[in-house]
């Protein structure tokens, strides 16, 4: 039977859109990172590795390190809160209500969520005012504009993204496996680490990716609650792009961020594969 290939027809708009607005732009960044800078934005068409040599200095390494450490901490805390929460929801009788409670902050505007923390942690914020009026402190505490504020707001922002996939995996988890493990003499910790966590591996993976990647690429959160000293890679990129107008440098930093992200995902997927001796996924 002769057949026209409708697959190509159906995917033609998709292919074109993704090529034009994703593949080409990201390729341009890669290209720009090897060109010379023009004074007020843009590039000169000459090959140069200035964009990369400018990265080899302590302050940039510090920013990359800071970004990675903050992201790992935030992801870890998020999982630590998300796994028991999802477990509780999955095993409760009022799943829909509890899921709804998680979805409302998830749907609340991103900037409003950040703003809420500014008005709580700020020098004249809710918390300082409470503590002052209760006489616990004499002068306002500097709660905002530091790395802890970044971590708190990052966890706050991405926690629902972690809970939802974890919930759907835990819901499908066969809890009789845990009973079986206990019957066969496994300790509580053994059944947690050898049965339960590997069993919900795909949920943990999705939750980690949903938290860790946005954290690495953070821009708005450090901008609004991080203060002068807490620059993350995203803030550096924006500065080179919009303020100092060094586009090859902004591009090379973007390439670095992409590479760091890819390495992060790769390490994570690999350690996860080694941990569980499950058959290879499709």
């Amino acid at each position: 039977m002769k057949k026209i290939n409708y697959g190509k027809i159906y995917t033609a708009p998709l292919t074109m859109w993704i090529t034009f607005f994703f593949v080409i732009p990201t390729s341009i960044i890669f290209l720009y990172s090897f060109l010379k800078k023009k004074l007020r934005g843009g590039v000169l068409w000459e090959f140069s590795i200035d964009g990369y040599t400018a990265l080899i200095n302590q302050s940039f390494f510090k920013v990359v390190w800071f970004t990675v450490v903050i992201s790992i901490f935030a992801t870890f805390l998020t999982l630590l809160l998300a796994i028991p929460t999802s477990y509780f929801i999955a095993r409760s009788k009022r799943k829909n209500l509890y899921l709804f409670l998680v979805i409302v902050p998830f749907w609340t505007n991103f900037l409003i969520r950040i703003f809420a923390w500014i008005s709580i942690l700020g020098n004249n914020g809710f918390l300082n005012n409470m503590l002052l009026s209760l006489g616990i402190i004499k002068s306002p505490l500097m709660l905002l504009y530091n790395q802890y504020a970044i971590i708190v707001v990052t966890v706050y922002t991405y926690l629902p993204y972690a809970i939802l996939p974890l919930y759907s995996t835990i819901e499908k988890f066969d809890f009789s496996l845990l009973e079986a493990a206990r019957d066969l003499g496994a300790s509580k910790l053994q059944s947690l680490f050898k049965i339960f966590l590997p069993g919900i591996r795909s949920g943990i993976m999705t939750a980690t990716i949903f938290t860790f990647i946005p954290a690495l690429g953070s821009y708005a959160i450090p901008l609004l609650v991080g203060g002068q000293k807490s620059f993350m890679i995203g803030n550096l990129i924006a500065r080179e792009l919009k303020v100092t107008m060094n586009w090859p440098l902004a591009s090379s930093m973007s390439v670095v961020l992409t590479v760091v992200t890819t390495i992060g995902i790769f390490i994570f997927l690999n350690t996860n594969k080694n941990k569980s001796e499950l058959k290879n996924e499709n």
């Binding site: 732009p25 990201t26 960044i29 690429g217 924006a238």
Partner: peptide, 9 residues
């Protein structure tokens, strides 16, 4: 991909 990369590109 980090969304900032999409914005920048």
């Amino acid at each position: 991909m980090p969304e900032i990369i999409i914005g920048v590109s």
